[in-house]
């Protein structure tokens, strides 16, 4: 892979050209998509108006309100949640050294769902209470999984298996709650369980912003160690990586990101699993690509939300449905094309 080096002010950084170019293109795509998402909807807003309102000018009456309380929070939540899920999934797949590793598989998406379901079906709290219970559920579950997997260190595969066991347990609990509830409550809960960007408020944006602003930089700082961990415990210890500590830090970061994403938009399916694979294939990077996964996650979620709104303007279709269809079909075609072209390449 060709690399280049930049030097400035006594510092130098080496980067691979292909991933850097591809990430730049992804960022541009994301920007264009964001602009588009801000303008479409039940009430069309022109791009000029949107930019003007962002710059602080008052928009036409009515438009102003829709833009600031409906459109912008929704778009921002989609961006933040998508990015958080993408990064979280990339960390988990690398940590567990399993291509199927993701927050859904590792159990804490199930824990977040349990927290939210208890709040919706049993306690009957509002949207913010549901978000916070989801966050609490994710953290309690993650701590439980980590403790149960701990026995003189936590190897990745044990983390995954314990996570699956606990996740299955919680999933059962969720299903029981769903089956024993009244059908109206169950429907509301099912919409939450699919992941929805309907009626997002600035509270949701705040949750997402804090998580992304704090945890993504930490993750990027730990990226080099994460790549070394993929070489195996012995080798990375030999190279000076404190294995146990690094793994705990990375695990905590990814739980925080996934938990906050779930709190903000419900357990949106498949983004965390698909984004790292899509990123790896688009960027052709050798190791885990956190920034790339974050970008792909954001594009996937925002794109799915726009598509769902366009196809079903009534707004009844939760975005989680669209991410599954779009992400699933796109990953499948990408896999099929990639492999039929280069049959010797490994997955």
């Amino acid at each position: 892979m060709s690399t280049r080096t930049v030097r400035a002010a006594g510092l130098s950084a080496r980067y691979a050209t292909r991933p850097a170019t591809a990430s730049g293109l992804l960022a541009l795509l994301l920007l264009a998509l964001t602009g588009y998402a801000l303008t479409v909807g039940e009430l069309p807003i022109s791009l000029g108006e949107a930019l003007g309102m962002l710059a602080g000018e008052p928009g036409p009456s009515g438009v102003d309100y829709v833009f600031w309380t409906v459109r912008l929070p929704r778009v921002l939540t989609a961006l933040l949640v998508g990015a958080a899920l993408g990064v979280s999934g990339a960390i988990l797949q690398s940590l567990s050294r399993n291509p199927l590793g993701s927050p859904d598989v590792l159990g804490f998406a199930g824990g977040a769902a349990t927290g939210a379901l208890v709040q919706i079906l049993v306690l009957g709290g509002g949207a913010l209470a549901v978000a916070l219970s989801a966050l609490a559920g994710a953290f309690v579950t993650a701590a439980l999984v980590y403790l149960l997997a701990y026995r003189r260190g936590v190897p990745g595969h044990r983390l995954v298996l314990v996570g699956i066991g606990i996740g299955a347990l919680l999933m059962s609990l969720n299903r029981y709650l769903l089956v024993s509830a009244e059908v109206d409550d169950a429907f509301r809960a099912a919409v939450w369980l699919t992941g929805s960007l309907l009626d997002r408020t600035w509270d949701h944006v705040t949750i997402g912003t804090i998580a992304v602003a704090v945890l993504v930089p930490v993750a990027v700082l730990l990226l080099r160690r994460l790549s070394l961990l993929e070489l195996g415990d012995e080798l990375s210890t030999g190279l000076g990586v404190p294995v146990g500590q690094t793994r705990l830090q990375l695990f905590a970061v990814s739980v925080g990101l996934a938990g906050a994403a779930t709190a903000a938009a419900g357990p949106v399916a498949f983004v965390a699993l698909a984004a790292p694979h899509l990123a790896r294939r688009l960027l052709r990077s050798a190791g885990p690509s956190l920034v790339g996964s974050g970008l792909v996650g954001a594009v996937l979620l925002l794109g799915s939300d726009v598509a769902a709104q366009q196809l079903f303007p009534t707004g009844e279709l939760p975005v989680g449905v669209a991410t599954g269809v779009l992400g699933g079909v796109y990953l499948a075609t990408l896999l099929g094309r990639h492999w039929s072209r280069r049959p010797a390449a490994s997955g």
């Binding site: 199927l100 399916a269 698909a274 599954g324 699933g328 499948a332």
Partner: peptide, 16 residues
């Protein structure tokens, strides 16, 4: 991976 992708697409179509 192909199985997971197809599965996700079908589950979502069902949920829709």
């Amino acid at each position: 991976l192909a199985g997971t992708a197809i599965g996700a697409a079908l589950v979502s179509a069902t949920e829709a």
